[in-house]
Design a protein around this nucleic acid. Structure first.
Lengths: 249, 249
DNA sequence: GACTTAATAATTGTCGACATTAAAACGAAT
DNA sequence: ATTCGTTTTAATGTCGACAATTATTAAGTC
């Protein structure tokens, strides 16, 4: 599997590049630091799925004990960013095709209801904050800052989740937004650099602010449907591979 | 707050009663053992909400290091059974009235969809297993074994969650079933010893097996509505209490 | 007697060391 | 050359000890 015996250290190195700020030894790393570093590395695909995450390497990298690393890895696993098995190294999660579809289906259900509940409850300041986020996303899109645009897109959905009167559902939606962003990073079609979907977010915000609950929920579901459609979710189809390889005419 | 200085140890003692099997020293406790003990104690209200859970007391009780206790407490917190704050003792979760309503609302949404997805997908053996669970619940109800009946009721919903084609939604439903059982234990009206709701589970199973997705989902939601209605979710209403106390005619 | 402040006790946070277990490397026999 | 078994290595699992923080107690003052 590992063609290069230094594979493990390489995975850690791709984290260190982000973590060591300015080459100076990091001040004091907490579990949140490690959590964020790994999470960001997964989102930006610097840590591809299946990457090994040895505790000792991470502890040396961040200058903390294994306890802290272990805590971060446990939290990451509970958020489905990594996978943990007893007596086995933690690895970056590898959500499959089927799981990806299930995540999207779950998010359509939850975000639809959250959208319905949020609609009509936003005050002037909240509405303004939402519009500002959307404006920033549009700006990032036009300037071609794709990474920043993705960040803004997530921020918009997270903002809606936090504004939901039902915070139990809100927290569920936050988790699903997180998992969605991971599978998008994994399965987004190569050519698609900008998946800026029309002005969906703008229209969605208008409906929410106006209090059109049903229409807003419907649009949110369609938005997620479109997003899922942009992904490259074709089955690996091991049969065909094998046949084409064995045929040596 | 604590009228008795031994309050902490008392909380631990109520666990020990269940844990020490037959007075013999426990063989080897793992984090799952501690998790289950505390979880069961919370469900049976031997550990009322707000009970302190000191790590040292638990570690001595179960004969393991604090690391194991800490792991169990972390898992319990992520499942909303306990609450953890930095530099502060873990306590049994105290979900409030509003949170309880939100949990029920979320479960109506999720379990409704899970029910719809499961409907019509059960094979003969699965249908038989489901009917067996319902039969056992009914039997426990008739014999007055309330604790066993609650256990069966949970098992039924958990079985449906596990049969759901969308396991992302299934896992969410499992969490919500767990939280629901906790708030039921906390807020169930004093007089209600048997909240055996007609033959809801039997009718629900019939609809699911027959594949009547919409009707099954509708019945599941109504079932949860009825269940929530049986709880004692009146606001503590500090005002009225204060007024009635101060009036001394 | 109530309130503020300092000393004390108890609890959680973190760490390094050791035990245990799974994977990898090596070697001998077929 | 391949396979099985052994040895070696490297990772995780667990533990006890110390540091940091918080809650409690006690004393002192107004």
């Amino acid at each position: 599997m590992a063609v290069d015996p230094r594979t493990d250290k390489q995975a850690a190195a791709s984290l260190g590049a982000m973590h060591t700020n300015g080459g100076r030894g990091s001040r004091k790393a907490t579990d949140q630091t490690i959590y964020d570093s790994i999470y960001q590395a997964v989102l930006t695909q610097r840590l591809p799925p299946g990457s090994k995450l040895p505790e000792v390497a991470l502890s040396e990298l961040f200058g903390v004990s294994r306890s802290i690393v272990r805590k971060a890895l446990t939290r990451l696993a509970s958020d489905h960013v990594t996978e943990q098995s007893p007596n086995q190294m933690a690895v970056v999660a590898r959500p499959g095709i089927e799981e990806t579809r299930q995540i999207f289906a779950a998010r359509r259900l939850v975000e639809g209801e959250v959208t319905r509940l949020v609609a009509g409850t936003l005050g002037k300041s909240e509405a303004q904050a939402l519009r500002k986020l959307i404006k920033e996303e549009k700006s990032a899109h036009e300037r071609g800052q794709d990474q920043h645009r993705v960040h803004c897109s997530m921020a918009i959905h997270q903002y809606l989740a936090r504004q939901c009167p039902n915070q139990v559902l809100g927290k569920m939606m936050l988790e699903l937004v997180l998992r969605t962003s991971i599978v998008i990073a994994l399965y987004k079609a190569p050519g698609i650099t900008a998946c800026f979907l029309g002005n969906d977010h703008g229209r969605l915000a208008d409906l929410i602010i106006k209090g059109e609950a049903d229409q807003a929920a419907q649009l949110a579901r369609e938005h997620l449907d479109t997003l899922e459609g942009l992904l490259d979710l074709d089955e690996p189809s091991g049969d065909i591979d094998l046949a084409s390889i064995l045929r040596y005419t």
